[in-house]
Design a protein around this nucleic acid. Sequence first.
DNA 1: ATACTGTATTACCATACAATTATATACTCA
DNA 2: TGAGTATATAATTGTATGGTAATACAGTAT
Lengths: 109, 109
Amino acid sequence: MSKTTLTPEILALIADRFKALAEPARLQILNCLRAGERTVSELVEETGLGQANVSKHLQLLHGLGFVARRKEGLFVRYRLADRSVFQLCDIMCARLEAEHKARRKVLAS
Amino acid sequence: MSKTTLTPEILALIADRFKALAEPARLQILNCLRAGERTVSELVEETGLGQANVSKHLQLLHGLGFVARRKEGLFVRYRLADRSVFQLCDIMCARLEAEHKARRKVLAS
DNA sequence: ATACTGTATTACCATACAATTATATACTCA
DNA sequence: TGAGTATATAATTGTATGGTAATACAGTAT
């Protein structure tokens, strides 16, 4: 959190953005995009999610600036807007690993 | 996301942790704890949230390892488990600022 | 114009969960 | 032991949202 005061409005904005990452389906989509640009149908195939579902998730991610899009004929190609998503996920994963290690240590004792 | 394969189970674990931060009330609590250890009642007073509500949020945050606790007589003192919460929030805030700047630029044009 | 394909939107249902009230548990003190 | 305080836990309710099916929209080709 920054130096500026955390008004309820700002808190809600931050929460909304975390909420976008609080869904396995969206994490899965973002992870696919990590490998590069993808059309909606490619994402549908790679994730196994429904088309309407993927499209809805993409609208949300796009609205919050997590992904960018580029129209090409019939297709719409989505890509990650920046790398910060991975910074976020990497920190979370580090937390998970730390938890996991701590649990093993407890069990081993 | 780490090098290991992202199974549905792992995705769910990560999503759960983001979900914990996807709530203004919990962000508010975490922000209070940034200043140092707090009892439940102190958090209730500082946040203006209900006692049962704060307690429930704290259970969740504790279960996911975001906060640690220490019992002292009648009181339970909560504190942040580590600094990674702020890394996460700082990245989100940077994203917000970037959005804000982009929006101003568009409006100014 | 029609048919076809890819993407977005709408409407609906089912589930998850935040907030609240009331109650229970844990601890201290008289 | 009983009263009082701090925290935790049910039980309940309202709301938000993920998934899906049906449909609309946009673009291409014949």
